[in-house]
Design a protein around this nucleic acid. Structure first.
Length: 614
RNA sequence: GGACCCGUAGUGUAGUGGCCUAACACGCCAGCCUGUCACGCUGGAGAUCGCCGGUUCGAAUCCGGUCGGGUCCGCCA
């Protein structure tokens, strides 16, 4: 570090090479050890800790000031870097061979006793207190290291894109509200009373317009805002790596993202083993059928098996009726869990119910060819053994079987698969495993509104070979039914997952007004509504839009995964609570009457507290 | 919108109907100490048990409500 007028060295710089040199250091007092005539201070900054010795024999003035010093005071100390006395080295400190022998101390700022211990990184503190005093929490090592890792990640992202010819472009935060997707945060306009801006849920439309402009490789570290309920992996404002490329198909985008992800991972966590290079690619169908998830964790096995053929002849009525209704019977084998206690199996059944299944069938194999389980009496031992074998089970294994609608059955089992792997530690947690899932269905049937809705992004293009499916049986897009060919159309959509977490998703977009318009019509937007909501992009597409596609990756989730955190609050400097509050700034806060008046707004009086959904 | 969990000195915990005049550790304050590094030793201060109401002879403890925090479902690219 370059010296400043306050300091010559950081608290990590004091090393044997500096011995004998006069130096001034500045930082926070981590600890004080007062031995009477001799006082030790551990001086801390974000780089490290250096021990300061104040000997009354050297400087009575400095000693007198050192007696006043308290933990977390900000001080500046001048003296000489000296080698420690033989046998007094501290191998727990990088600077433990030396110390600063002080001749002068200046207290730059006093400090109240902090609400929680700063100098013990292992100290557990209630999160609401950490959030209220976030600036103190950020003084502590663990959070500070994660914020630094995040900075390294963003730099690695910028370096990779810059080297590959991408242009970083900032897009506006005040944009137009659209009803698609999540609920918008809305900002009232003062200059145009009664009208509002929306804060962007993502720079989606802007980046597509940039493609029309010819910025064929764009990226941005973009803040995105969504007014939805929070979760451990969801904050109302979060950061995405947003990128878009022209003259590409899905394989081109995936190839770039893969290369970039590897570079970023190696820059941030060179120590963690990577399971897959190149990243495996699963169609949505394959991911669901093999792992019961569209973001599979492939660090462990326990893949799902289709048991439909056997189940049809099993004599178990539940299986047969599910299959008759077009459902699926799927199973998985959990290695070595044949001896699982009945109580734990009941817990799994409860979990399966919560995940949406009506029940869970289990079979447990012992080591001597015996089998027990919920349906052994009904189907007989031989059929039970055949089902277990078909699920891939051997002696000592546990088989779980779910019969339900297609996709639901697999997803329930997928939930149990993750739970079993976590609970029984079936994999190495340090391993990183990126996977692609692609060829998602274009649309899903929206029961409530009896119409097709985009599974992901409404701008995603259809796979070329499925183009003919963008239609309804009636021929009229306004008269849709769940049996329409549109339900079978697959999108040029790809999601990237890391260790079972959704990291990002993107697609090749429609780049002609005709195709985009056709897709919007299928989703029940009449021409007038399209013009109203998407006039900008629809018009732009009439002026020569290149084929293009892109992706957005959740930066918060990504760095959380790379730093072993299960909550993105742990990688954000100033996050919000699950009710959307900022405990440090006490936001949101009531609005002043004159602010409202200026905006031409009135608050609706609320009677009671049960109107909050209005 | 719903379900569940948590709330006791500054911090982390113990106490789950009377043994509580609320305990322990760290921190804090004062004194002593020249080689400590989680310094040590001696002494001290600090809590109306989140808030409101109820049950009870008696409530930190049981019940209802409320506020705050967390996890999940709904919602959400």
């Amino acid at each position: 570090m370059r010296p400043t007028s306050y300091r010559d060295l950081t608290c990590a710089d004091a090393r044997l090479e500096e011995v004998g040199k006069p130096a001034t250091l500045a930082g926070w007092v981590n600890r004080r050890r007062d031995l009477g005539q001799l006082i030790f201070l551990d001086l801390r900054d974000r780089y490290g800790i250096t021990q300061v010795v104040i000997d009354n024999a050297d400087s009575p003035e400095a000693h007198a000031i050192a007696e006043q010093v308290r933990p977390e005071c900000v001080v500046r100390v001048s003296g000489t870097i000296t080698k420690r006395l033989a046998g007094m080295e501290n191998d727990k400190l990088d600077t433990g061979d030396v110390e600063l022998r002080a001749t002068e101390i200046e207290i730059l700022a006093t400090a109240k006793t902090p609400p929680f211990v700063i100098n013990d990184p292992a100290a557990e503190v209630d999160e609401s207190i950490r959030l209220k005093y976030r600036y103190l929490d950020l003084r502590r090592g663990p959070l500070q290291r994660r914020i630094v890792a995040r900075s390294r990640m963003v730099k690695a992202i910028r370096d990779a894109h810059d080297a590959a010819g991408f242009v970083e472009i900032e897009t506006p935060l005040l944009i137009k509200s659209t009803p698609e997707g999540a609920r918008d945060f809305v900002v009232p306009s003062r200059l145009q009373p009664g009208s509002v801006y929306a804060l962007p849920q993502s720079p989606q439309q802007m980046k597509q317009l940039l493609m029309v402009s010819g910025f064929d490789r764009y990226y941005q570290i973009a803040r995105c805002l969504r007014d939805e309920d929070l979760r451990g992996d969801r904050q109302p404002e979060f950061t995405q790596l947003d990128l878009e490329m022209s003259f590409v198909d899905d394989t081109d985008v995936m190839a770039w993202v893969e290369e970039m992800c590897l570079a970023v991972t190696k820059a941030v966590r060179p120590d963690r083993p990577l399971l897959n290079d190149p990243f495996p690619r699963f169609s949505f169908r394959e991911a669901i059928d093999r792992f019961g998830s569209d973001k599979p964790d492939v660090r462990y096995g326990m893949e799902l098996r289709d048991l439909g053929d056997l189940a049809a002849a099993s004599g178990f009525r539940v299986f047969e009726s599910v299959l008759d209704a077009g459902g699926r019977v799927v199973g998985l084998a959990a290695p070595g869990l044949g001896g699982l206690a009945r109580k734990q199996i009941d817990e799994l059944t409860e979990l399966a119910r919560k995940a949406g299944a009506s029940g869970l069938v289990w079979l447990a194999l012992d080591g001597e060819g015996g089998i027990r389980g919920s349906i052994v009496k009904v189907v007989g031992e031989e059929m039970a053994h055949r089902l277990a074998a078909a699920a891939g089970a051997g002696p000592g294994d546990l088989v779980l079987i779910v019969a339900d609608r297609d996709i639901t059955a697999q997803e329930v089992l997928g939930t149990l698969r993750v739970e079993l792997a976590d609970r029984h530690e079936m994999y190495d947690r340090s391993v990183l495993s990126y996977v692609w899932v692609y060829q998602f269905p274009m649309y899903h049937w929206d029961e409530d509104n009896a119409r097709w809705d985009a599974t992901h992004n409404p701008f995603s293009a259809v796979l070329p070979e499925d183009e003919a499916l963008l239609t309804t049986n009636s021929g009229d897009p306004a008269v849709a039914s769940p049996e329409d060919p549109a339900g079978r159309a697959r999108a040029q959509q790809y999601d990237i997952a890391l260790n079972g977490w959704e990291l990002g998703g993107g697609s090749v977009r429609f780049h002609t007004r005709e195709m985009l318009s056709k897709s919007f019509s299928l989703m029940g937007h009449d021409l007038e509504a399209q013009e109203e909501q998407f006039s900008g992009i629809l018009e732009a597409f009439e002026y020569g839009a290149p084929p293009h596609g892109g992706i957005a990756l959740g930066v918060d989730r990504w760095i959380a995964l790379l730093t072993d955190q299960s909550n993105i609050r742990e990688v954000m400097a100033f996050p919000k609570t699950s009710s959307g509050s900022d405990l440090m700034l006490d936001a949101p806060s009531p609005v002043h009457a004159d602010q409202l008046a200026e905006l031409g707004l009135m608050l609706q009086p609320r009677i009671g507290r049960d109107r909050s959904s209005d």
